[in-house]
Design a protein around this nucleic acid. Sequence first.
DNA 1: CTTACGATTCCCT
DNA 2: GGGAATCGTAAGC
Length: 178
Amino acid sequence: MYSAPPPAADLARLLLGAEFQLRGAGGVITETEAYSLDDPASHSFGGPTTRNRAMFGPPWHLYVYRIYGLHLCINIVGRPGEAVLLRAIDPQIGCDVMQMRRNRFPLALGPGRLAQALGVEMSDDGKPIDGNRVSLTLNEVNTTEILTGARIGISRAQDKLWRFGLAGRAHSRPFRPR
DNA sequence: CTTACGATTCCCT
DNA sequence: GGGAATCGTAAGC
């Protein structure tokens, strides 16, 4: 967990099935997307800026950004310039709190909903996964249970199949059979 | 089921 | 000033 992270796409698969918690709310990660340095769809493409600086910080930290002027999205930083977007979790811990924050269903399908349910704030950007306020527990997942697809909502590098999901779990959007 | 659109913030060109 | 790693709502098929 505090070891050197694998390349972004491998990290995205590794995080599937993991238990993620933020300040007492969380669940099992069921959908992720990988973003690498050499990737025109990544915020890190082109080098460090004020917004993306956490992506160039230490691994196993959070990268949080605002999207479309409204929603927040949460990533786990891997290698320098790389991160994994958390797109969906299966709620397990603090469901009552998540329901209070969301006030509607689904609770955590989609990066914006997930961030709202977990109470993510911009001040969480760059925070470490310290096992206390933010915790991550990896779980073994069989390769045959991993679904693959194109990333959502991007305009560049749409050919990369760097969206991953856990079979038999709820996702923000369906995975087309491949 | 699908597609379409407006809301709204802030980084980057 | 453009446009974005989205969501909720509405309307059409």
